[in-house]
Nucleic acid binder design. Sequence first.
DNA 1: CCCGAAACGAGAGCACTGCTCTTGCATGAG
DNA 2: CTCATGCAAGAGCAGTGCTCTCGTTTCGGG
Lengths: 231, 231
Amino acid sequence: MTTVRGARARARVEITAAIKAEARAQLAAEGAAKLSLRAVARELGMVSSALYRYFPSRDDLLTALIVDAYDAVGAAAESAAREAAGERSLDRWTAVCRAVRAWAVAHPHEYALIYGSPVPGYTAPQDTNAPAARVGLVLIGIAREAHGGEGIALPPLPDVLRPEAVRITADMAPDLPPELVAALVAAWSQLFGMVSFEVFGQFHRLVEDRDAFFATAARRLGRDIGLLPPV
Amino acid sequence: MTTVRGARARARVEITAAIKAEARAQLAAEGAAKLSLRAVARELGMVSSALYRYFPSRDDLLTALIVDAYDAVGAAAESAAREAAGERSLDRWTAVCRAVRAWAVAHPHEYALIYGSPVPGYTAPQDTNAPAARVGLVLIGIAREAHGGEGIALPPLPDVLRPEAVRITADMAPDLPPELVAALVAAWSQLFGMVSFEVFGQFHRLVEDRDAFFATAARRLGRDIGLLPPV
DNA sequence: CCCGAAACGAGAGCACTGCTCTTGCATGAG
DNA sequence: CTCATGCAAGAGCAGTGCTCTCGTTTCGGG
């Protein structure tokens, strides 16, 4: 219980990790569509059927990689928020945005796995929900600090959106005003829109100085959720 | 020249269309990853090798579908802009945003094909460039009319972004001010961020009244490119 | 009009995939 | 020490993209 059972159990976690590592390598090299169980097994010097002792199917391997990817980008966002702890909210916001983007461009295939088209008939199991929420929680945290500190400035909600905004707020952050939560959800999706366009090549031959473009746009996103520019 | 050469050529365009139609059906049913040349051929009552007379590879079939999808969403955007011709710029903007979103939710797999993760080692050929630009051109058109009509209100560009904004402006819309073009590119990517999050299920169990959410966010996007709200 | 070239459909075949099932071996718990 | 269990290996199934060959059909220039 306290430690790993025995040699057998130890070998199991080691081999499981090795499989994930090799799969991640193939993912980075060729993309999710070309991830082959047989190739992974071959590279690890085992036979393909042996791999099914560790992952019941290819989709389960993918799920494990998806969880890892969500955790990786979530951790990147969290550490960026931590490192910018002392700064003004708008700067913390842009720091987190930058961290997400940096992780995405450094791991394009893993990013595609979690924020690209969902794979065939695959539906994400429950296990992915918590890791998937981490980046959003970081953004909410920054908004919360701004709300309790410098304050936020947002226009009132239109009537059509008010009930929905109130509902989402009750679900996610009951201590925040609904207009802030609604703006957060929008900014959240818009942030990943910019990142996806860059990673997926939509900016090809259009935007070249992407650092400058992204920094400015992320800052405007922060203003859109009511964060105040330095006076 | 003026008309189709003969029976053979006529049959060719017919069969090509039938293949694309069946492929599109399978795409809608199962997604791009499960699109199988053999299955398409089977459904059409021919043998798989015969299909290679019309599309040299599976990727070429996908390219054809990609071009069609870009054209479809581009046409939807154009017709929305046309129908909202008389209205204020901000309303035309939101009308186009709504049209893009409506097409996306109606054709999720085709949307995923063009705005989701790029397929394996596939790189989009030149043919896709023009169709892919149509939605962006519609958005630029609306901004142009607003600029020449009601006017736009935008903050000045930060120094880091100015050279890049000037460059992009020279490439795309030399008659518009660089701050407007820079804001347009950002809003463009952010719009598709929201659509992608909805289509790809990132809003699952989070945003429910998506019409209201999207309408409000699209309107704010319009404000972000300087479109003025009705007085 | 006709005959060679080109286009075409069918079929076999290759190398690959995910996955299942059986077999035999080694390990670790009682 | 023994025996159930965990495990790797191999064969095999159904499916894939793609290539090549082989008759047949169609078309267009002499």
